[in-house]
Write a protein that binds this DNA or RNA. Structure first.
Lengths: 127, 127
DNA sequence: CTTTTTGCAAACCCTTTGCAAGACA
DNA sequence: TGTCTTGCAAAGGGTTTGCAAAAAG
C-alpha cells in the first residue's frame, strides 16, 4: 500500500481535468491550469495525472504515436484518434466483446491486458 | 499512383528485415545493416521501412509508448509487448473476432481501422 | 534532364529524471 | 521530524525534417 499525501497541486490538477471537455493531454492540462497557477510545473502535472489514473480517479488513454490523454469519464468506453487533426474523440461503438485468451499464451507469454485503438476522421475534418 | 524508384538502400533494408528473427525496430534494423553498409543513414532506414510497410512488403507494428517495429511476416497475427524487457513477441491467440462497427459512428466520426495491443510478461522475464 | 532519394544534422514531440528545496502528516 | 512531493532544467527515446548533393529512369 502506497502512502500518498494530499497536495494542493494534486487537487488542482484533478479539478482541471474534471472541467475540461474532452480528452486533454498532459500538456493541455498543464497549459490550461498554468494561467491560474503559474507556479505548478509541467513535471508535477505529468506525475499527478499518472497517479490519479492509477488510483482510478481518471482514465489514462494511450494514444499510439501521440500524446497520451486523460478522461474524467472513467466508465469504460472507446476512443478514436483523428488522422488529420490528431484529436481524440469518444466513439459510441457499443458492446465490443471482450477478447478471450488464455492468461498464458502457447508462446509462453503471460498476457495481462490489451488495448484497442481506433483511427479515423472526425466530424470537423470531414468538411 | 505514386512512382517510386528502386534504390540499393531500399533493397538492403528489405533484405535486412527479412533476415532478422523477430520484430526489429527501425533502430535495430539500422544498427544491424550499418556494419555491412556504413553509409546508409538512419533517416533512410526510417523512410524506407515506412514505405515498404505501405506497399505491404512488411508489417508495421505500432507499439504503444515504444519504438514501432516491423515484421517480415505479413500474415495477420498479434503481438505482445513485455512490460519488463520491452521486447515484442508474437502470440498465438487464435481467431480474434473482428470488431464490428459502423464505418460512420454515431458521434459522426468515420472509423477507418483499429489496432489491438497486448501487454504482459515474456517467457524470459518470468524467470 | 527531371524527379526521387539520399545523408546529414538539427529539430521535434512527449515524457521522465536527478536533485535540492519545500510541504505534509 | 521524516518522507512525500514539488519545481527546475536537463536528458531521454523515438522519429521527422530541411536541405543540398547524388542517383534513378
Amino acid at each position: 500500500m502506497i502512502i500518498t499525501r494530499n497536495t494542493v497541486q494534486r487537487e488542482i490538477i484533478l479539478q482541471t481535468v474534471m472541467n475540461m471537455d474532452s480528452h486533454p493531454s498532459a500538456d493541455e492540462v498543464y497549459e490550461k491550469l498554468k494561467y491560474e497557477n503559474p507556479s505548478i510545473s509541467r513535471a508535477t502535472v505529468y506525475r499527478n495525472l499518472e497517479l490519479l489514473a492509477k488510483r482510478g480517479k481518471i482514465l489514462h488513454i494511450e494514444i499510439p504515436k501521440g500524446a497520451d490523454c486523460f478522461d474524467f469519464n472513467t466508465i469504460e468506453h472507446h476512443h478514436m484518434r483523428c488522422d488529420i487533426c490528431r484529436k481524440v474523440y469518444d466513439i459510441n461503438i457499443l458492446k465490443i466483446p471482450k477478447i478471450k485468451y488464455d492468461k498464458i499464451d502457447s508462446s509462453g507469454c503471460i498476457i495481462n491486458e490489451y488495448t484497442i485503438s481506433f483511427k479515423g476522421i472526425c466530424p470537423n475534418c470531414q468538411k
